[in-house]
């Protein structure tokens, strides 16, 4: 994977971006501290983690990956990334008792 750095000419866009960052730094720090302390005290996201805490054995795994297309985007990760949150149900979630 290539990472390419492009130099900037120091235009108005850069100044505006820097100014926005500096204006936002204080409020963002306040919100961050609020969220950190609230989570540390209330632990609302604490939960049983059966995906790692229950003994489970995979007896068969079939993989199928099909290339769709190349893309470019400003997003740093795929939209709707849920690979790290297995406890949150997908958009379509179905269960069948055999």
């Amino acid at each position: 994977m290539d990472i390419i750095y492009l130099a900037s000419s120091g235009d108005d866009g850069g100044s505006a971006g820097l100014a926005f960052f500096l204006f936002a730094a204080g409020p963002a720090a306040g919100i961050g501290i609020w969220a950190y302390i609230y989570n540390r005290y209330r632990n609302k996201s604490a939960r049983y983690k059966p995906e790692t805490e229950v003994h489970s054995q995979v007896t068969n795994l079939v993989e199928n990956d099909q290339f769709i297309k190349k893309f470019q985007t400003k997003r740093s990760s795929i939209e709707g990334n849920n690979v790290q949150s297995p406890h949150e149900r997908a958009r379509i979630s179905q269960f069948e008792h055999m």
Binding site: G14, S56, N60, Q66, K74
Partner: peptide, 29 residues
């Protein structure tokens, strides 16, 4: 596949796939 950085933004290039997994699992307790 590629990341292009300027000082005010980053453009990400990549490949998109349709992903399917079928798994059989035995769950104990």
């Amino acid at each position: 596949t590629k990341k292009v950085r300027r000082d005010d933004e980053t453009i990400y290039y990549g490949d998109r796939y349709a992903v399917t997994r079928h798994v059989d699992v035995l769950v104990d307790d």
